[in-house]
């Protein structure tokens, strides 16, 4: 009945000390974040300009 599921059968994970290197990830999300800020601020200034 019970169906073994990949996630459940995985061995107990040891807390690794060396986290994987995610420099590229950090850079990518920050690029994304700056794009969000840029868009938001542009439209906010459009609003102010039209006041």
């Amino acid at each position: 009945m019970a169906i073994p599921q990949l996630q459940n059968t995985k061995p107990k994970v040891k807390m690794t000390k060396e986290s994987p290197s995610l420099k590229g990830t950090l850079a990518s999300v920050f690029l994304l974040g700056f794009f969000l800020m840029f868009t938001w601020i542009s439209i906010y200034f459009l609003f102010l300009d039209r006041l």
């Binding site: 994987p20 290197s21 995610l22 420099k23 590229g24 990830t25 990518s28 999300v29 994304l32």
Partner: peptide, 12 residues
């Protein structure tokens, strides 16, 4: 967003 980039980077 972070998880996705991390998955890709760890694989690469």
């Amino acid at each position: 967003a972070f998880s996705m980039f991390a998955t890709f980077e760890m694989y690469g």
